[in-house]
Simulated scan of single mutants.
Amino acid sequence: MITLPHGCQCSEISVTPKDWKTCKASAMARNWHIQYYFYDTAIKKRKFVLVKGMNRFKTLTERREATVQLIENELYNLKDKGYNPISGKFLIESFGSIEPTAGFIDALRKAFKLLKLESTTMQDISSAINFFETAAKKIGIERIEIQSVKRRHLRQVLDMVGELKKSWSAYSFNNCRAYLLMLYKKLLEEDAIDVNRVKEIPKQKNILKLKRVLDEKERLRIDTHLKEIDPNYRRFIHIFFHSGSRKTEMVWLKVADVNLEKQVFKLFIKKGSQQREELRAIKNIALDFWKEQLDGSSPDDYVFSTNFRPGETRTTTKRMGNKWRLYVKEGLGIDIDFYSLKHLNLDETSKLLDAEAASKMAGHSSTVITLKHYLVNEEERKRKRLRKVSNDFCVTN
Protein backbone atom coordinates (compact mmCIF):
# COMPACT_ATOMS: atom_id res chain seq x y z
CA MET A 1 0.00 0.00 0.00
CA ILE A 2 1.07 3.58 -0.72
CA THR A 3 0.54 6.17 2.02
CA LEU A 4 -1.03 9.39 0.74
CA PRO A 5 -1.81 12.82 2.27
CA HIS A 6 -4.67 13.21 4.77
CA GLY A 7 -4.42 9.59 5.88
CA CYS A 8 -5.52 8.15 2.53
CA GLN A 9 -3.96 5.15 0.85
CA CYS A 10 -3.85 3.47 -2.53
CA SER A 11 -2.70 0.14 -3.87
CA GLU A 12 0.24 -0.20 -6.22
CA ILE A 13 -0.67 0.95 -9.72
CA SER A 14 -0.79 -1.91 -12.22
CA VAL A 15 -1.27 -2.07 -15.97
CA THR A 16 -3.47 -4.14 -18.23
CA PRO A 17 -2.07 -5.99 -20.13
CA LYS A 18 0.36 -7.28 -17.49
CA ASP A 19 3.08 -7.89 -20.08
CA TRP A 20 2.82 -4.33 -21.44
CA LYS A 21 6.58 -3.83 -21.23
CA THR A 22 7.41 -6.95 -23.27
CA CYS A 23 4.27 -7.77 -25.28
CA LYS A 24 4.23 -8.14 -29.03
CA ALA A 25 2.47 -5.92 -31.59
CA SER A 26 -0.66 -8.08 -31.40
CA ALA A 27 -1.35 -6.55 -27.98
CA MET A 28 -2.12 -3.27 -29.73
CA ALA A 29 -5.55 -4.64 -30.62
CA ARG A 30 -6.50 -4.65 -26.94
CA ASN A 31 -7.56 -1.67 -24.81
CA TRP A 32 -4.88 -0.80 -22.29
CA HIS A 33 -5.46 0.87 -18.93
CA ILE A 34 -3.90 1.41 -15.54
CA GLN A 35 -5.78 0.58 -12.35
CA TYR A 36 -5.55 0.82 -8.58
CA TYR A 37 -7.68 0.92 -5.43
CA PHE A 38 -8.02 4.18 -3.51
CA TYR A 39 -8.92 4.17 0.22
CA ASP A 40 -10.32 7.20 2.04
CA THR A 41 -9.81 6.22 5.68
CA ALA A 42 -11.71 9.25 6.99
CA ILE A 43 -15.00 8.13 5.47
CA LYS A 44 -14.01 4.44 5.24
CA LYS A 45 -14.71 4.15 1.53
CA ARG A 46 -12.86 2.40 -1.27
CA LYS A 47 -12.90 3.10 -5.00
CA PHE A 48 -11.54 1.14 -7.95
CA VAL A 49 -9.89 3.61 -10.35
CA LEU A 50 -9.31 3.03 -14.07
CA VAL A 51 -7.19 5.44 -16.10
CA LYS A 52 -7.03 5.29 -19.89
CA GLY A 53 -5.42 7.52 -22.47
CA MET A 54 -2.69 5.47 -24.06
CA ASN A 55 -4.89 3.66 -26.60
CA ARG A 56 -4.82 6.48 -29.17
CA PHE A 57 -1.13 5.73 -29.83
CA LYS A 58 -0.54 3.39 -32.75
CA THR A 59 2.92 1.99 -32.03
CA LEU A 60 4.10 -0.09 -29.07
CA THR A 61 6.86 2.38 -28.23
CA GLU A 62 4.50 5.34 -28.12
CA ARG A 63 1.90 3.46 -26.11
CA ARG A 64 4.47 2.29 -23.57
CA GLU A 65 5.86 5.81 -23.18
CA ALA A 66 2.33 7.17 -22.72
CA THR A 67 1.61 4.50 -20.10
CA VAL A 68 4.71 5.45 -18.12
CA GLN A 69 3.69 9.10 -18.28
CA LEU A 70 0.13 8.34 -17.14
CA ILE A 71 1.43 6.39 -14.15
CA GLU A 72 3.72 9.28 -13.21
CA ASN A 73 0.85 11.76 -13.60
CA GLU A 74 -1.45 9.70 -11.39
CA LEU A 75 1.15 9.24 -8.65
CA TYR A 76 1.97 12.94 -8.74
CA ASN A 77 -1.70 13.88 -8.36
CA LEU A 78 -2.17 11.39 -5.52
CA LYS A 79 1.03 12.09 -3.58
CA ASP A 80 1.90 15.73 -4.29
CA LYS A 81 -1.53 17.26 -4.85
CA GLY A 82 -3.60 15.10 -2.53
CA TYR A 83 -6.03 14.05 -5.26
CA ASN A 84 -9.04 12.16 -3.92
CA PRO A 85 -10.77 10.13 -6.69
CA ILE A 86 -13.84 9.66 -4.48
CA SER A 87 -14.53 13.38 -4.00
CA GLY A 88 -12.81 14.41 -7.23
CA LYS A 89 -10.94 17.17 -5.35
CA PHE A 90 -7.29 18.13 -4.88
CA LEU A 91 -6.60 18.65 -1.16
CA ILE A 92 -3.15 20.22 -1.51
CA GLU A 93 -2.70 23.52 -3.32
CA SER A 94 0.70 25.06 -3.85
CA PHE A 95 1.24 28.80 -3.87
CA GLY A 96 4.01 31.16 -4.84
CA SER A 97 5.91 31.75 -8.06
CA ILE A 98 5.73 29.40 -11.00
CA GLU A 99 8.79 27.20 -11.11
CA PRO A 100 10.23 26.00 -14.44
CA THR A 101 9.86 22.48 -13.06
CA ALA A 102 6.10 22.89 -12.51
CA GLY A 103 3.93 20.44 -14.42
CA PHE A 104 2.36 21.63 -17.67
CA ILE A 105 -1.25 21.90 -16.43
CA ASP A 106 -0.23 23.08 -12.95
CA ALA A 107 1.75 25.88 -14.54
CA LEU A 108 -1.19 26.90 -16.73
CA ARG A 109 -3.53 27.03 -13.73
CA LYS A 110 -1.04 29.10 -11.72
CA ALA A 111 -0.63 31.47 -14.66
CA PHE A 112 -4.42 31.74 -14.89
CA LYS A 113 -4.61 32.97 -11.29
CA LEU A 114 -2.28 35.84 -12.21
CA LEU A 115 -4.39 37.05 -15.13
CA LYS A 116 -6.58 40.12 -14.69
CA LEU A 117 -9.19 40.13 -17.43
CA GLU A 118 -12.93 40.67 -17.62
CA SER A 119 -15.04 37.93 -16.08
CA THR A 120 -16.35 36.43 -19.33
CA THR A 121 -12.84 36.12 -20.75
CA MET A 122 -11.63 34.51 -17.53
CA GLN A 123 -14.49 32.01 -17.74
CA ASP A 124 -13.57 31.18 -21.33
CA ILE A 125 -9.91 30.67 -20.43
CA SER A 126 -10.83 28.51 -17.42
CA SER A 127 -12.98 26.34 -19.67
CA ALA A 128 -10.14 26.11 -22.20
CA ILE A 129 -7.70 24.97 -19.49
CA ASN A 130 -10.08 22.14 -18.59
CA PHE A 131 -9.96 21.00 -22.22
CA PHE A 132 -6.16 21.41 -22.26
CA GLU A 133 -5.94 19.20 -19.17
CA THR A 134 -8.13 16.47 -20.65
CA ALA A 135 -6.13 16.61 -23.88
CA ALA A 136 -2.80 16.55 -22.04
CA LYS A 137 -3.90 13.51 -20.04
CA LYS A 138 -4.87 11.66 -23.20
CA ILE A 139 -1.53 12.48 -24.78
CA GLY A 140 0.35 11.72 -21.56
CA ILE A 141 2.06 15.09 -21.01
CA GLU A 142 0.03 16.50 -18.11
CA ARG A 143 3.05 16.37 -15.77
CA ILE A 144 5.83 17.25 -18.19
CA GLU A 145 7.83 20.19 -16.81
CA ILE A 146 6.66 23.48 -18.28
CA GLN A 147 10.25 24.35 -19.25
CA SER A 148 10.40 21.15 -21.32
CA VAL A 149 7.15 21.66 -23.25
CA LYS A 150 7.92 21.90 -26.96
CA ARG A 151 5.94 23.39 -29.82
CA ARG A 152 4.92 19.91 -30.95
CA HIS A 153 3.42 19.22 -27.50
CA LEU A 154 1.30 22.36 -27.68
CA ARG A 155 0.22 21.54 -31.20
CA GLN A 156 -0.76 18.02 -30.10
CA VAL A 157 -2.82 19.48 -27.25
CA LEU A 158 -4.66 21.86 -29.59
CA ASP A 159 -5.31 19.05 -32.07
CA MET A 160 -6.63 16.81 -29.29
CA VAL A 161 -8.92 19.59 -28.03
CA GLY A 162 -10.33 19.69 -31.56
CA GLU A 163 -11.17 15.99 -31.25
CA LEU A 164 -12.77 16.49 -27.84
CA LYS A 165 -15.01 19.42 -28.74
CA LYS A 166 -18.38 18.84 -30.41
CA SER A 167 -17.73 21.61 -32.93
CA TRP A 168 -14.32 22.74 -34.12
CA SER A 169 -13.22 25.22 -36.74
CA ALA A 170 -10.34 27.54 -37.61
CA TYR A 171 -12.09 30.14 -35.45
CA SER A 172 -12.19 27.71 -32.49
CA PHE A 173 -8.53 26.79 -32.99
CA ASN A 174 -7.48 30.44 -33.06
CA ASN A 175 -9.47 31.16 -29.90
CA CYS A 176 -7.81 28.31 -27.98
CA ARG A 177 -4.45 29.40 -29.30
CA ALA A 178 -5.14 32.95 -28.10
CA TYR A 179 -6.01 31.72 -24.59
CA LEU A 180 -2.86 29.59 -24.50
CA LEU A 181 -0.86 32.60 -25.69
CA MET A 182 -2.19 34.73 -22.79
CA LEU A 183 -1.19 32.05 -20.30
CA TYR A 184 2.25 31.65 -21.82
CA LYS A 185 2.85 35.41 -21.72
CA LYS A 186 2.28 35.26 -17.97
CA LEU A 187 4.58 32.22 -17.67
CA LEU A 188 7.25 34.19 -19.51
CA GLU A 189 6.81 37.12 -17.10
CA GLU A 190 7.23 34.74 -14.17
CA ASP A 191 10.45 33.29 -15.69
CA ALA A 192 8.91 29.83 -15.76
CA ILE A 193 9.84 29.62 -19.46
CA ASP A 194 12.41 31.34 -21.66
CA VAL A 195 10.52 31.25 -24.95
CA ASN A 196 6.84 31.62 -25.75
CA ARG A 197 6.35 28.52 -27.90
CA VAL A 198 2.73 29.39 -28.66
CA LYS A 199 3.94 32.19 -30.96
CA GLU A 200 5.58 29.50 -33.10
CA ILE A 201 2.17 27.97 -33.85
CA PRO A 202 0.56 29.87 -36.76
CA LYS A 203 -3.08 30.85 -36.73
CA GLN A 204 -5.39 28.90 -38.99
CA LYS A 205 -6.97 30.71 -41.89
CA ASN A 206 -10.56 31.51 -41.10
CA ILE A 207 -13.12 32.22 -43.81
CA LEU A 208 -14.77 35.54 -43.02
CA LYS A 209 -18.41 35.01 -43.88
CA LEU A 210 -20.69 37.89 -44.79
CA LYS A 211 -22.80 38.84 -41.79
CA ARG A 212 -26.55 39.04 -42.24
CA VAL A 213 -28.52 41.53 -40.19
CA LEU A 214 -32.23 41.95 -39.59
CA ASP A 215 -34.33 43.44 -42.37
CA GLU A 216 -37.18 45.86 -41.69
CA LYS A 217 -39.91 43.19 -41.69
CA GLU A 218 -38.00 41.02 -39.23
CA ARG A 219 -37.38 43.97 -36.94
CA LEU A 220 -41.10 44.79 -36.90
CA ARG A 221 -42.03 41.16 -36.17
CA ILE A 222 -39.56 40.99 -33.29
CA ASP A 223 -40.71 44.28 -31.79
CA THR A 224 -44.40 43.33 -32.00
CA HIS A 225 -43.71 39.89 -30.54
CA LEU A 226 -41.65 41.19 -27.60
CA LYS A 227 -44.19 43.92 -26.89
CA GLU A 228 -46.78 41.21 -26.31
CA ILE A 229 -44.80 38.61 -24.35
CA ASP A 230 -41.98 40.47 -22.53
CA PRO A 231 -42.12 44.32 -22.52
CA ASN A 232 -39.14 44.56 -20.16
CA TYR A 233 -36.90 42.59 -22.52
CA ARG A 234 -38.24 44.61 -25.47
CA ARG A 235 -37.19 47.83 -23.71
CA PHE A 236 -33.76 46.35 -23.06
CA ILE A 237 -33.41 45.42 -26.74
CA HIS A 238 -34.15 49.01 -27.81
CA ILE A 239 -31.68 50.44 -25.28
CA PHE A 240 -28.98 47.90 -26.15
CA PHE A 241 -29.48 48.40 -29.89
CA HIS A 242 -29.01 52.17 -29.67
CA SER A 243 -26.17 52.02 -27.15
CA GLY A 244 -23.52 50.52 -29.43
CA SER A 245 -22.12 48.80 -26.34
CA ARG A 246 -21.17 45.24 -25.47
CA LYS A 247 -23.24 42.92 -23.32
CA THR A 248 -20.48 42.68 -20.70
CA GLU A 249 -20.49 46.47 -20.38
CA MET A 250 -24.26 46.85 -20.06
CA VAL A 251 -24.46 44.11 -17.41
CA TRP A 252 -22.50 46.23 -14.91
CA LEU A 253 -24.27 49.51 -15.65
CA LYS A 254 -25.81 51.16 -12.57
CA VAL A 255 -28.55 53.78 -12.37
CA ALA A 256 -26.09 56.27 -10.83
CA ASP A 257 -24.02 56.04 -14.02
CA VAL A 258 -26.86 57.36 -16.18
CA ASN A 259 -27.47 61.11 -16.65
CA LEU A 260 -30.74 61.60 -18.50
CA GLU A 261 -30.46 65.38 -18.47
CA LYS A 262 -27.13 65.33 -20.32
CA GLN A 263 -28.14 62.18 -22.24
CA VAL A 264 -25.03 60.20 -21.38
CA PHE A 265 -24.20 57.02 -19.50
CA LYS A 266 -20.87 55.93 -18.07
CA LEU A 267 -19.44 52.51 -18.80
CA PHE A 268 -16.52 50.68 -17.25
CA ILE A 269 -14.52 49.36 -20.19
CA LYS A 270 -12.24 46.38 -19.69
CA LYS A 271 -10.53 44.99 -22.76
CA GLY A 272 -7.59 42.73 -22.13
CA SER A 273 -5.40 44.35 -19.48
CA GLN A 274 -6.72 47.85 -20.25
CA GLN A 275 -9.37 49.42 -18.04
CA ARG A 276 -11.06 52.79 -18.33
CA GLU A 277 -14.31 54.66 -17.82
CA GLU A 278 -16.05 56.09 -20.85
CA LEU A 279 -19.10 58.23 -21.51
CA ARG A 280 -21.54 57.12 -24.20
CA ALA A 281 -24.34 59.14 -25.77
CA ILE A 282 -28.03 58.42 -25.28
CA LYS A 283 -29.75 59.01 -28.61
CA ASN A 284 -32.84 61.19 -28.74
CA ILE A 285 -34.72 58.27 -30.28
CA ALA A 286 -33.87 56.06 -27.29
CA LEU A 287 -34.37 58.62 -24.52
CA ASP A 288 -37.96 57.61 -23.71
CA PHE A 289 -36.89 53.98 -23.31
CA TRP A 290 -34.21 55.06 -20.83
CA LYS A 291 -36.69 57.22 -18.89
CA GLU A 292 -39.17 54.36 -18.67
CA GLN A 293 -36.43 51.96 -17.62
CA LEU A 294 -35.16 54.14 -14.77
CA ASP A 295 -38.58 55.15 -13.46
CA GLY A 296 -38.83 54.30 -9.74
CA SER A 297 -35.24 53.04 -9.52
CA SER A 298 -32.55 53.76 -6.90
CA PRO A 299 -29.03 55.06 -7.69
CA ASP A 300 -27.40 51.84 -6.42
CA ASP A 301 -29.60 49.62 -8.58
CA TYR A 302 -28.24 47.86 -11.62
CA VAL A 303 -30.06 49.21 -14.68
CA PHE A 304 -30.83 45.65 -15.79
CA SER A 305 -31.61 43.13 -13.07
CA THR A 306 -32.83 39.54 -13.41
CA ASN A 307 -36.17 40.57 -14.95
CA PHE A 308 -34.54 43.36 -17.01
CA ARG A 309 -35.90 45.99 -14.64
CA PRO A 310 -33.59 47.90 -12.25
CA GLY A 311 -32.66 45.95 -9.15
CA GLU A 312 -30.03 45.06 -6.56
CA THR A 313 -28.73 42.08 -8.51
CA ARG A 314 -27.51 42.35 -12.08
CA THR A 315 -28.64 40.24 -15.00
CA THR A 316 -26.13 38.13 -16.94
CA THR A 317 -24.89 38.13 -20.52
CA LYS A 318 -26.10 34.54 -20.76
CA ARG A 319 -29.64 35.59 -19.83
CA MET A 320 -29.52 38.35 -22.46
CA GLY A 321 -28.67 35.84 -25.16
CA ASN A 322 -30.94 33.06 -23.89
CA LYS A 323 -34.04 35.22 -24.09
CA TRP A 324 -33.14 36.21 -27.65
CA ARG A 325 -32.75 32.56 -28.58
CA LEU A 326 -36.07 31.66 -26.93
CA TYR A 327 -38.12 34.56 -28.28
CA VAL A 328 -36.54 35.27 -31.65
CA LYS A 329 -34.57 32.28 -32.97
CA GLU A 330 -36.93 29.61 -31.67
CA GLY A 331 -40.14 31.60 -31.18
CA LEU A 332 -40.13 33.42 -34.52
CA GLY A 333 -37.74 31.22 -36.49
CA ILE A 334 -35.44 34.16 -37.28
CA ASP A 335 -31.96 32.64 -37.32
CA ILE A 336 -29.88 35.70 -36.47
CA ASP A 337 -27.70 36.00 -33.38
CA PHE A 338 -28.33 38.54 -30.63
CA TYR A 339 -25.05 40.35 -31.27
CA SER A 340 -26.12 41.21 -34.82
CA LEU A 341 -28.03 44.09 -33.19
CA LYS A 342 -24.74 45.84 -32.56
CA HIS A 343 -23.59 45.29 -36.13
CA LEU A 344 -26.90 46.64 -37.42
CA ASN A 345 -26.85 49.79 -35.29
CA LEU A 346 -23.23 50.65 -36.05
CA ASP A 347 -23.76 50.06 -39.76
CA GLU A 348 -26.78 52.37 -39.86
CA THR A 349 -24.93 54.98 -37.80
CA SER A 350 -22.10 54.91 -40.32
CA LYS A 351 -24.62 55.29 -43.15
CA LEU A 352 -26.26 58.34 -41.53
CA LEU A 353 -23.04 59.91 -40.25
CA ASP A 354 -19.73 58.17 -40.99
CA ALA A 355 -17.48 55.30 -39.90
CA GLU A 356 -15.72 57.49 -37.36
CA ALA A 357 -19.00 58.25 -35.57
CA ALA A 358 -19.88 54.54 -35.53
CA SER A 359 -16.44 53.76 -34.12
CA LYS A 360 -16.95 56.38 -31.39
CA MET A 361 -20.33 54.86 -30.49
CA ALA A 362 -18.77 51.41 -30.12
CA GLY A 363 -15.85 52.70 -28.05
CA HIS A 364 -13.28 51.55 -30.60
CA SER A 365 -9.92 53.33 -30.60
CA SER A 366 -9.98 53.61 -34.40
CA THR A 367 -12.21 52.77 -37.35
CA VAL A 368 -10.16 49.68 -38.25
CA ILE A 369 -12.10 47.21 -36.07
CA THR A 370 -15.42 48.94 -36.81
CA LEU A 371 -14.93 48.72 -40.56
CA LYS A 372 -13.61 45.16 -40.51
CA HIS A 373 -16.19 43.55 -38.23
CA TYR A 374 -19.29 45.73 -37.85
CA LEU A 375 -20.12 47.88 -40.87
CA VAL A 376 -21.69 45.06 -42.83
CA ASN A 377 -23.03 47.23 -45.68
CA GLU A 378 -20.15 49.70 -45.92
CA GLU A 379 -18.59 47.97 -48.91
CA GLU A 380 -21.88 48.06 -50.81
CA ARG A 381 -22.24 51.77 -50.02
CA LYS A 382 -18.76 52.32 -51.44
CA ARG A 383 -19.62 50.35 -54.55
CA LYS A 384 -22.79 52.41 -54.95
CA ARG A 385 -20.81 55.64 -54.79
CA LEU A 386 -18.26 54.24 -57.22
CA ARG A 387 -21.00 53.42 -59.73
CA LYS A 388 -21.88 57.11 -59.85
CA VAL A 389 -18.34 58.27 -60.62
CA SER A 390 -18.57 59.88 -64.08
CA ASN A 391 -14.98 60.23 -65.25
CA ASP A 392 -15.14 59.61 -69.01
CA PHE A 393 -12.17 58.06 -70.75
CA CYS A 394 -12.71 60.35 -73.68
CA VAL A 395 -14.40 63.71 -73.25
CA THR A 396 -16.14 65.08 -76.33
CA ASN A 397 -17.39 68.63 -76.73
Rank of each mutant, 00 (worst) to 15 (best):
I2V: 05
I2K: 13
T3E: 11
P5T: 06
H6G: 00
C10T: 07
V15T: 09
V15N: 10
T16S: 08
W20L: 13
W20D: 11
A25T: 15
M28V: 02
N31R: 15
W32A: 04
I34W: 04
Y36D: 01
I43A: 02
G53K: 11
F57T: 06
E65V: 09
L70H: 11
I71D: 03
E72C: 01
E74A: 07
N77E: 15
N77H: 15
L78F: 09
K81A: 04
N84Q: 07
P85I: 05
G88Q: 09
I92H: 06
I92G: 03
I98R: 06
T101C: 02
I105Q: 08
A107S: 15
L108F: 12
F112W: 08
E118Y: 13
T121W: 03
D124I: 08
A128G: 02
E133F: 08
A135P: 02
A136D: 09
E142I: 08
R143Y: 04
I144T: 11
I146K: 09
V149C: 05
V161P: 02
V161N: 01
L164D: 02
K166I: 06
K166W: 03
Y171A: 15
F173L: 05
C176D: 12
C176A: 12
L180M: 15
L181D: 14
E189F: 06
K199T: 07
K199Q: 14
K205F: 04
L214H: 07
L214M: 07
E216K: 15
T224W: 06
T224A: 14
K227I: 00
I229S: 03
P231H: 07
H238F: 07
H242Q: 07
T248M: 12
E249K: 13
E249D: 11
V251S: 05
A256L: 13
Q263H: 13
Q263E: 14
I269W: 04
I269E: 05
I269D: 00
R276P: 00
R280C: 03
A281M: 11
A281G: 03
N284V: 01
W290I: 03
K291D: 03
G296W: 12
D300S: 13
Y302D: 00
Y302N: 05
V303W: 07
F308Q: 12
G311P: 10
E312Q: 15
T315M: 09
R319D: 01
M320K: 06
K323Q: 07
W324D: 04
L326N: 06
G331Y: 14
D337S: 15
L341G: 04
H343P: 01
N345E: 14
L346C: 10
T349C: 11
L352T: 11
D354A: 10
S359M: 10
M361T: 12
M361H: 09
V368H: 06
K372R: 11
H373R: 02
E378P: 00
E379Q: 11
K382A: 01
V389I: 13
D392P: 13
F393G: 07
T396K: 15
N397P: 00
